[in-house]
Amino acid sequence: MKTLVVGASGATGKLLVEQLLKAGQSVKVIVRFSSSIPQTWKNNDRLMIIKVDAIEAISIDAMTVYLEDCQSVASCLGHNPNFKGIYGKPRRLVTDMIRLLCHAIIKNAPEKPVKMVLMNTAGNSNRDLNERISIGQKLVIGLLRLLLPPHVDNEKAADYLRIKIGHKHPFVEWAAVRPDSLITIENVTAYSIYASPARSALFDAGQTSRSNVAHFMCQLLLDDSVWERWKGQMPVLYNDMISAKS
């Protein structure tokens, strides 16, 4: 199987690429010319590095070519945590990329649906499940929508998959992984997966290591039983408490 990864130069994206390669998979990554990538990637026969001036400027025709031999795709794209990344353009980086990827897959009309895994956030509700949140959290989320464009981007990216692609698309199957507060732990540790948040992402946030996010995304892509359990859903990840303290 071959997987295309966008956002591969980010903290979680690099870990996902490494785990896919460790599992023996072939991988394509799309990165900016200015991106920093591990030196070992440049000498790996199972890894194709596609460099572009701007991720947001990729055409539908180019993406169609990039995806034509891929059976799965993963997005770890996000906004840089600085003023330009939060308030500058493109404000819909993730949503626009998910839309582009879906359009390219549909244009290729694959014989089997392509798996798409989106890295999202526990701060975004799965409105297919009508998840209950407190009035206080609703008020804060309303403010986040006004003040933090990346939050809206995360919501719209997941909504595109839920609403536009849906659950019975002939060419695209999807899952949106929702970690809580991201932390860095070198190794994969024990973690738990829930269909909906087990705690408030704003007032009682849990922790999720980037290594565990990458591991679960890898499992979704490679393990059919895991995929069947979670496709069309937005699973939430938390590090197990013992692991988080180790």
Rank of each mutant, 00 (worst) to 15 (best):
Y66C: 08
G24P: 14
D61C: 13
M97K: 06
L77S: 10
M97P: 00
A158H: 01
L143Y: 03
N43W: 13
S36P: 03
S192I: 06
A8L: 09
E173A: 04
R210K: 04
K107A: 05
L144G: 00
S34M: 13
D53F: 15
Y66D: 10
M48A: 13
I37K: 10
A11F: 11
A54E: 15
E18V: 13
G166V: 00
L129D: 02
M119I: 04
M97D: 09
D159Q: 07
V52S: 08
S209K: 08
H103T: 15
A201N: 09
G136D: 12
C70H: 07
F203T: 07
T189F: 12
L15Q: 05
V152L: 07
K245P: 11
A122M: 02
D61G: 15
A54W: 15
I105A: 02
A11Q: 07
C218A: 06
L93I: 06
L67Y: 07
L47W: 12
E173G: 08
N124V: 11
D180A: 08
K168E: 00
V29I: 14
L77I: 09
N154M: 02
V52Q: 09
D96Q: 09
E173L: 05
C218R: 08
L147E: 15
K51Y: 13
M63F: 14
A11W: 07
W41H: 14
S209V: 04
E131D: 07
D153R: 00
N80E: 12
I193Y: 11
Y194K: 10
D180S: 08
K89C: 09
R145E: 06
E131T: 13
R127S: 02
A201L: 10
K231L: 00
L146S: 04
S26C: 15
G142E: 02
H169A: 00
L67V: 06
A176E: 01
D223V: 06
K156W: 02
V31M: 03
K138Q: 11
G166E: 01
R92W: 13
G85M: 11
L101N: 07
P113E: 05
N108D: 11
N130P: 01
G166S: 01
T12H: 04
V226G: 08
P170F: 01
L118A: 04
S59Y: 14
H79C: 03
A158D: 02
A205S: 14
Q207V: 08
S196N: 09
R46A: 14
D180C: 04
K22F: 14
S181L: 11
R199A: 12
L143F: 06
